[in-house]
Amino acid sequence: MLQGDRASDRVVPPTGFTARLTVFVSAAMAFLAVFALALSLAAGRLATTWGDELARASTVRISAPEGQMAAQTSAALRLLQQTPGVDSARALSEAEQRALLEPWFGPDLPVDQLPVPQLIEVTETADGYDAAGLRLRLQAEVPGAVLDDHARWRRPLVAAAARLKLMGWVSAILIAGAVGAMVTLAANAALAANAQVIAVLRLVGATDAYISRAFVRRFTLRALTGSGIGTFVGVLAVFLLPASGETAGFLTGLGFKGWHWVVPLLVPPLASAVAFAATVVAARRVLGDLS
């Protein structure tokens, strides 16, 4: 379709202004689509990371008088190991606890002399455990133990990230729809403006397929050109976003990683496909109404 039918392309007079507008809107839409995809993919990565961490670990914190600490810790460990859904439970060593506190109190804190609670790291199986049941049993057997279930505060964040991802995809779909609507309007205008051309072509025996091909080819190529430019600029802009480094937060993490760089390359072919379909439908409708 790209090289063939130059002859059928010639029968429709060139129109500078609408052509440029179509190219411009396609470019703008492609640029926005690249950002929507970057947002969506970044949010997806975030949701996955947070979700994985959340599914894996929780903490039991034991505060007990000096003498009972060891007994309560071993009781809690025993209880945890018998709990279905717990993969492993391990009391943190003194050194590990000191490392956790260091950012707040400095390296010289004498942890062994302070009533620091004992932490137990609990790793869950894929199925997870029944948090409410475990809490009740801990209360009964280890009065000083508090189950700190990370899910409670991370779950809303994961849900928000997942929602953000969904909104990114919805935006991408809306952008595709807007491209289709824009091309439909432009094609309708072009078909109306070329009523005489169409009448002449019908008179000399052109089929609807021949006539619509001239318009379809033109709008598909315009959408391809515009979205190609828009995608290039969009990808370049995402590429040039300030690097996030170690402290990858959400905003600085916006962009593509690994094979995700391929995704924006799908924008121009998809935009062309949308333009193709929109013009075919518009041409079929307009030509069907003519004698």
């Binding site: 010639r10 007079p13 009448a199 019908r202 008179l203 025996g205 397929a209």
Partner: peptide
């Protein structure tokens, strides 16, 4: 519509107000 288009190839029509594609030279 396609049958009509095909039959037009066997019928030459000269209109009272002849219309052409104004952006193409006469030979085309």
């Amino acid at each position: 519509r396609d049958d009509i288009a095909m039959s037009r190839r066997r019928i030459g029509v000269v209109h009272q107000d002849c219309q052409f594609l104004d952006h193409l030279p006469l030979a085309e």
